[in-house]
Simulated assay, not measured.
Amino acid sequence: MDEAVDFQLGGDARGKRIVVAMSGGVDSSVVAALAARTGAETIGVTLQLYDHGEAVGRAGACCAGRDIRDARAVCDRLGIAHYVFDHETSFRTQVVDRFADEYLAGRTPIPCVQCNMGPKFTDLLTLARDLGADCLATGHYVRRMIGEDGAELHRGADPARDQSYFLFATTQTQLDFLRFPLGALPKPRVREIAAELGLGVAAKPDSQDICFVPDGDYAGLVKKLRPDADTRGDIVDMAGRKLGEHRGLIHYTVGQRRGLEIGGSPEPLYVVRLDADTRRVVVGPRTALAVDAARLTDLNILGPLGGPLTAKVRSMARPVPARMVGDRLVFDTPEYGVAPGQAAVLYAGDRVLGGGWIAETEAATLAA
């Protein structure tokens, strides 16, 4: 293991204390190993967020029973302390319930961002400070770099693993305290390090994006939490003409084409809008998905927004040229698949400038 990871502790790490957020996966386990190797006192902390992963026996769930045992085993091997804190109630309120409510409101939620904004960062940072830590280290694939005005958030060096989209809401105060030692490494090398150190999680599958949803059945979870979520309604075209019926708004997202179960149209139809008040699914041709701008709420600013930038409006989307005009994100060319409830993350090159939540969109003139 030849990596010399800098935890940016300001000199000799001996006498320092690093708290590592441990989910029981390979990434956070390697972070703990790298932290311990610096000579700093290292403490592993796991938040027990729910019991669900163990109950369904789903590989890749995080922060549940089996994963806590894995984190503890890694800490035992490294000879460092490990603490578990029960945050199930906080996770349910801040993440799971909000996930269900967003779907009922016709929006497309991103629970991973909410988890980072709440239990994982806010709660863990408080715990780390209570433990007298000099920093909190996590296994996220992003880079913390020091610029002229202090700590900056940058994309992970490995484009296939970059997680900056999910961390846009990290505040400057949090960024000053956080460390991301894996940001410059490719995932295969991280697994190699785990194997070299004899960590039992070296070959463990990656955690799923939405850890609390069994088998990706979002609708099933929402129905369990909100029994009225399956209320049927009309599928209408852009002019309001009824084309069919749907089986509940929770089964649809903006940009969706499959599963509409309507026929007779000379061209493919897509979900253009979900109207929670009327329980209508509005469909139209692909051109109707084109968006010129989006209004953002709860903006988090990590860098200057006055000049040209790029924006990412879905986790798997490519950043596109845009600019901010007040609270409006204006695209240089029409963008497709921009859904209320998703995040818009702003970049200058690899640097994350911040972002916000998409509240509403403005249809492109070509879709009028």
Results as ranks from 00 to 15, higher is better:
Arg273Met: 04
Val291Gly: 07
Thr42Asp: 08
Ala4Glu: 06
Arg328His: 10
Leu260Tyr: 09
Gly10Ala: 02
Cys75Leu: 00
Ile18Gly: 08
Gly65Ile: 00
Leu249Tyr: 07
Val26Arg: 01
Ala359Phe: 03
Phe180Pro: 03
Gln208Cys: 04
Cys62Thr: 08
Gln172Ser: 13
Val201Cys: 12
Gly39Leu: 10
Ala195Gly: 14
Ala195His: 15
Ala184Ser: 14
Ala368Val: 03
Arg314Val: 05
Val84Thr: 03
Val254Thr: 11
Asp70Lys: 00
Gly356Thr: 03
Leu49Val: 06
Arg318Thr: 14
Ile146Arg: 07
Arg351Ser: 12
Met238Asn: 06
Lys223Asp: 08
Tyr83His: 09
Phe180Tyr: 15
Gly200Gln: 12
Thr108Ser: 13
Pro304Leu: 00
Leu197Asp: 09
Cys211Thr: 07
Gln163Glu: 15
Glu88Val: 01
Ala61Trp: 02
Asp230Leu: 09
Glu362Ala: 08
Leu199Tyr: 07
Glu152Ala: 06
Phe121Thr: 15
Pro340Asp: 06
Leu124Gln: 05
Gly355Pro: 10
Thr333Ile: 03
Glu88Asn: 01
Asp292Phe: 13
Asp230Phe: 08
Gly264His: 08
Arg241Phe: 11
Arg286Ala: 15
Gly147His: 05
Gly79Trp: 00
Pro205His: 07
Pro186Leu: 02
Leu221Thr: 14
Ala195Trp: 10
Tyr336Asn: 08
Phe177Leu: 04
Thr171Trp: 04
Gly106Asn: 11
Arg232Ala: 14
Met238Ala: 11
Thr122Leu: 06
Val283Phe: 14
Thr173Cys: 01
Gly44Ile: 02
Ile193Trp: 08
Glu152Asp: 10
Ala294Ile: 05
Leu305Ser: 05
Pro181Thr: 09
Arg107Cys: 15
Arg107Ser: 15
Ala59Phe: 02
Arg161Ser: 07
